[in-house]
Design a protein around this nucleic acid. Structure first.
Lengths: 364, 364
DNA sequence: CTGCCTGATGTTTACGTGAACACGTTCCCT
DNA sequence: AGGGAACGTGTTCACGTAAACATCAGGCAG
């Protein structure tokens, strides 16, 4: 019967205020145990209970013991609503995001939650299942009313733009996957740098040019990767083939792969994430194009699975844990110093992990 | 300057209580706009503001408009701490889990968050990075003090067991990945049923027996799958080879695969999740064992990627969305009816998705 | 014309906590 | 021994909201 609350306080508030008593015949008289209850049982004032509860000095050991005993007996738990009201803060960070299914968000959220916990903060999740304006606006509105001290947004920029006005005044915000560095703090993997490493790696192997399977247009990260891919090719004087547009899913990578398999010139592909690379590998395999002998493939993310693709995938490693850590650091810095206006972009370096899906092109 | 708070309330509380004023020279006088501020600007009582804010009837249109205008002007937002204190609830559900990285948890959490949002509840995440007793206990303790009305636990049973006593009295709990059905409500995929479908499928194809790559012992789901696998084999009178023990990772599946490739008798393998199946596929491929011609492989989870493995993976589909939905339903039912003691196990059916990684054994 | 009822709005109060201040005791120092 | 500092504990109050009750004006029926 763990879940039952104590049947009766040991010393019921007989003579005191009759709150809750009147007109409630059989019902439980009180939802929760309050400081006053503990104080009464321990025979002290509620302020002393407060002091014990918060570990303040200046309470004699015997009194403290008495209070602690009363707490245990009644199963007292501080009421966080009252605390939050008193202190004006919740020790909670809100996280707005689209989907936990994407590799990036779920790992970033996990890191955020872990680091926040280490700082004594909890995480409140506001997912937006469908990325309509209404949903985004709704999420921001809800967030504004929520028990939250600061907000981390993992979201594309243009959707954020329209929702901006809804952010609670005085809110502390850090954004991922966006270039809103002029208005909010931004933390993100250095997409451009990672992409450059990937594309240059392919060019250095001797490939004439590199094809691209891009992520959805709505994603800022996908845009940045596509831009950087094009920039490297232009810089190297290589022709840039028209990119394929995917949606992060393996299925879209597969579709692109079927098309790419028909391009005899295609010897190197940069996929904007590992899942699309997976679909790509399967399509090429199906069409009898060997990887890496015929076609080299590079992914992005370095998911734990990428090392076990066939063949093991060369990919750009993102340090999601570090991104999450810096997000938390960012909002907590704002929160603690009150320094609202510290926009700027904090880029976490990426690194290329070379495995077996890349090789020099077949000598003609 | 979206983030700035309004410089001054339009009609400062000149004669009223001097709270916050004394000794704070340059500082902002008030952190937040309260009902009283809105009431003053609108020239009504704060109670009327409350009525407007909560959409109560009985406020004349002109008054309502005035209040709404004042709200807009001051950027008023209800204080959820005060609300929670008043109402005694937070409209928030806490979720305790180990890791978002595992496919199952992250998809379950997402479904939980989505359905909770639909019911007007937010989700507070309490991750436990390392599964030590202390961490688990700490998480439960924190959760007890947190702004949370109910708790969903995604965790193995034996760790929960020891932490049980720490759960806040009166808390409403639903558990996933556990058999604590006698004490808490449990929602889970029907692991045994899914496993039976997978193993029977292999036997029906004509395989003599089925090997097993199990998940970690600490996982209840892994235990259930291993049990059911063994039960089906025994029922069919097949010898049960010693299972390999993995840790859900593709790497552990790869290791098991290398060993299995040396077993000439092995023609069918049931992996306890898709990631291990991925590692398995690669190991078999490396060792020249063709899938499904030489060895059939079945996974569990049906991750979105599984359809794009080489070859596309036959696997057991888990309906995580449904599990999440029922979790939320469960706690909200408890919450609303106050029916604490409705333990029982709610199993969500699984189904087998047959793709190309399974085939009859090579005829000898 | 009077009295009551209805509907709109204001006033009071409690929710649980903890800072600030008040009070009383003990013990030390002169 | 007397004064006061230091310390332990109690009392008061405010945080922002909303239910319960109070009040007030206007309309309508007897």
């Amino acid at each position: 019967m763990v879940l039952n609350e104590p049947e009766q306080p040991a010393a019921p508030a007989a003579g005191g205020a009759g709150r809750g008593g009147l007109g409630v015949p059989g019902g439980r008289r009180k939802q929760r145990v309050s400081m006053a209850d503990v104080a009464e049982l321990a025979g002290v004032s509620s302020q002393t209970v407060s002091r014990v509860s918060n570990g303040h000095a200046g309470v004699v050991a015997s009194t403290r013991e008495q209070v602690l005993a009363a707490m245990r007996e009644l199963g007292y738990r501080p009421n966080s609503a009252a605390r939050a009201l008193r202190y004006g803060r919740f020790n909670t960070i809100g996280v707005i995001l689209f989907s936990l299914s994407s590799t990036g968000s779920s790992r970033t959220v996990e890191a955020i939650a872990t680091h926040a916990a280490a700082e004594g903060y909890a995480i409140t999740l506001i997912p937006i299942d469908v990325a309509t304006q209404d949903n985004v606006l709704g999420a921001f509105t809800r967030m504004g009313e929520l028990a939250v001290d600061a907000v981390i947004v993992i979201m594309e920029i243009h959707l954020l733009d329209t929702a901006t006005v809804q952010l609670p005044p005085g809110a502390h915000v850090v954004v991922v996957d966006s270039d809103a560095g002029d208005r909010y703090g931004v933390v993100d993997t250095d997409q451009a740098d990672g992409t450059r490493r990937a594309v240059r790696h392919l060019l250095e192997l001797g490939h004439r040019t590199v094809w691209h399977v891009a992520g959805p247009e709505s994603s800022y990260a996908a845009q940045r990767r596509a831009q950087a891919w094009r920039a490297v090719l232009e810089e190297a004087g290589c022709p840039a083939p028209a990119p394929f547009r995917g949606d992060w899913s393996a299925e879209s990578g597969y579709a692109a792969g079927l098309a790419l398999a028909e391009e005899p010139d295609c010897t190197a592909v940069f996929a904007s994430n590992d899942q699309m690379a997976l679909g790509l590998l399967r399509a090429l395999h199906e069409r009898g194009r060997s990887v890496p002998a015929d076609v080299s493939v590079v992914g992005f993310d370095d998911t734990p699975d990428a090392a076990f693709f066939i063949p093991p995938l060369t990919t750009v490693h993102q340090d999601f844990a570090e991104v999450g850590r810096r997000c938390v650091e960012g909002v907590l810095h704002q929160l603690r110093t009150g320094d609202d206006s510290r926009p700027g972009t904090d880029l976490v370096p990426a690194r290329l992990v070379i495995r077996e899906s890349t090789a020099p092109p077949r000598t003609t």
